[in-house]
């Protein structure tokens, strides 16, 4: 029996088939689990309970990331995406459900529905600019910033994390094949 968190999508093959290119590399982050968290910052106790369970702060400023054992993206005034080691995702989802059970909150483990990609290299900002209207200048899209937008014709969550020219791009599973084909084309 396969482990619960094991990703099956065949995307590595697509990347392996690419001809090598300079200044741009991409990897599929099967090591990450994805949780979608909803909650009301105005409700007493929500923030404390959530942060205690996750063990790090929830980013409250729009378009920012909180980095720690988990990487937490601000998605909206009451919505976060928590990327956490895949093997811990289900457990964390359960813990959040129980610690927030007396709150108006919602947790969804969406590890199976999303694909996270790490894009690195000196050309990464240029490649992103070919499909996204956000400003990827290194002094604008600085480390720790994130945004939801469109990349080519797919909705994505993009975050600059872990290095100057390093980005996490999260896309819905059903769009991943298209997005990789597009990245292959423009990169």
């Amino acid at each position: 029996m396969t482990e619960w968190h094991e990703k099956r999508h065949g995307l590595e093959q697509r990347i392996a088939d690419w001809t090598s290119r300079t200044g741009f590399t991409i990897s599929v982050r099967d090591d990450l689990g994805h949780l979608n968290l909803r909650g009301d910052l105005g409700s007493p106790g929500f923030l404390a309970a959530a942060e205690e369970t996750i063990g790090q702060p929830l980013p409250q400023a729009p378009n920012t990331i909180s980095d720690g054992d988990s990487t937490i993206f601000w998605l909206g005034p009451d919505e976060w995406l928590i990327l956490t080691p895949a093997e811990k995702a289900a457990n964390l989802a359960d813990q959040l459900e129980s610690s927030l059970s007396n709150q108006h909150a919602a947790t969804n483990n969406v590890s199976g529905g999303q694909i996270a990609l790490t894009l690195t290299g000196e050309r990464v900002r240029e490649v992103l600019a070919k499909g996204c209207a956000l400003d990827f200048h290194p002094q604008v899209f600085t480390e720790g910033r994130c945004a939801q937008s469109g990349l080519a014709r797919a909705n994505v969550t993009i975050g600059s994390i872990g290095g100057d020219n390093k980005f996490l791009v999260i896309v819905r599973r059903s769009f991943a094949d298209y997005l990789l084909a597009w990245l292959d084309g423009v990169a």
Binding site: R8, H9, G10, G112, K130, G131, A152, R153, A154, R173, S174, F175, D177, Y178, L179, A181, W182, G185, V186
Partner: peptide, 18 residues
């Protein structure tokens, strides 16, 4: 631009597509 051929519009695939 790049929106031609297979990239004209996203093709969404299910997990069983393969």
């Amino acid at each position: 631009g790049e929106s031609v051929g297979e990239l004209y519009d996203p093709v969404r695939k299910t997990a069983v597509h393969e």
